[in-house]
Simulated assay, not measured.
Amino acid sequence: MRHLFAAEWSRLFSRRITLVTALLVGGMLAFITFGFTLTGSSPTPAEVTQAEQRAVPLAQLWDQRTEHCSRVQSGLEQAEPNEDLPRACDYGPRPTADSLLDYGFSFHRQWPSLYYGAAVLFALAGFVLGASFVGVEWSSGGMSSLLLWAPRRGRVLGAKLLAALAGVGLVSLVYLTLWTGAFLAISAGNGTVSQMTGGEFGSLLLTALRVVFLAMAGTALGFSVASIGRHTSAALGVGITYLLLWEFGSTVVFTVVETTDYAEPYRLSSYARAWLRKGVLPDEGGVGTVARSTFKATWETGGLVIAAVVAAVAAAAFLSMRRRDAR
């Protein structure tokens, strides 16, 4: 297994599509970084003073709500009628002068949105790479030749899948680290007036791991569907159809009729959002949607659903590998 993995690892990074995809993703990240450098500017002393004055009462209100929520959840106080307290008393970050300033880019304020965008980009790139990595082997006859040398089909497919997951995970982690460093450098040069706390850095690191997990999940899905269909185009066709007809199509339908988005609990993107944002609550629907949202999920639920879907599709791929003759 170790030799198979080493061979597949080497083949993954020697493929032209891997290099092209890595360059495209890196170029897109660099373009986004350059765009944020153009919006960076330093706040004036008057703006800083005004933000500091506004931050004081807002921070006090945040402290009061958080303390009340903690006492209610610990049983020391009773909740008010119809009072809906957030899970784990998560009222978001504590208001600071920096969070109230609108002077272009602030890593402290905007890093969650940046990471959510990176998660989508990495997951799509992983899906394409995973699909092409095994799809080309089936369509070109390379899989048949490989099975003559290593006839244990489950082990062969497992080595390919592990190499694809490890490769995409490593590249995603490296890109995310470099991207974060670039944004920290930009933020440090534009007059940021507050610093991130240790807890906020811990949240950042956990979100980064969630981004890498989604990239690997996308890779596994693309790999598995392409293996079942024995062609890269099979995975790309399934992926594009799912995104257009279900993810995008159902959102548009419920937005047009302006009713409750009943399809939201059945879309993978809903659970991906819950996984990245540490949970979602009703009326926190997708960006730009008019449809009412009643969907509620924790980050644990989001991760479990995504893992279950990936495991089910991967199991189907391995079952198909064992039942079919290599041709």
Rank of each mutant, 00 (worst) to 15 (best):
F5M: 04
R16W: 15
L19V: 14
A22M: 06
G26S: 08
G27S: 09
A30W: 07
G35F: 00
T44Q: 15
P45R: 10
T49D: 14
E52V: 02
E52A: 09
Q53M: 03
W62L: 00
E67P: 00
V72C: 12
E80K: 10
P81Q: 10
P93R: 14
D98L: 03
L100F: 07
D102L: 06
Y103F: 07
Y115N: 13
A119N: 04
F122T: 02
F122K: 00
A131P: 13
A131Q: 14
F133M: 10
V134L: 10
W138P: 02
S139H: 15
S140I: 04
L147A: 08
G154L: 13
V156W: 09
K160R: 04
A164S: 11
A166H: 06
A166M: 13
L178H: 05
L178G: 15
W179M: 05
T180N: 03
A185Y: 09
G191D: 13
Q195S: 08
G198L: 04
L204M: 15
A208T: 11
R210P: 00
V211E: 14
T219N: 05
I228R: 01
R230Q: 12
T232V: 08
A234H: 07
L236V: 14
G239W: 07
L243F: 15
L244H: 02
V252E: 06
F254V: 11
V256Q: 10
A263V: 10
L268I: 13
S269W: 00
W275C: 08
L276W: 08
L276G: 06
K278M: 07
P282V: 09
P282I: 08
G285V: 08
K296G: 01
A297E: 02
W299E: 10
V305G: 03
A307S: 11
V313A: 11
A315D: 15
A315F: 12
L319E: 03
S320E: 06
R327K: 04
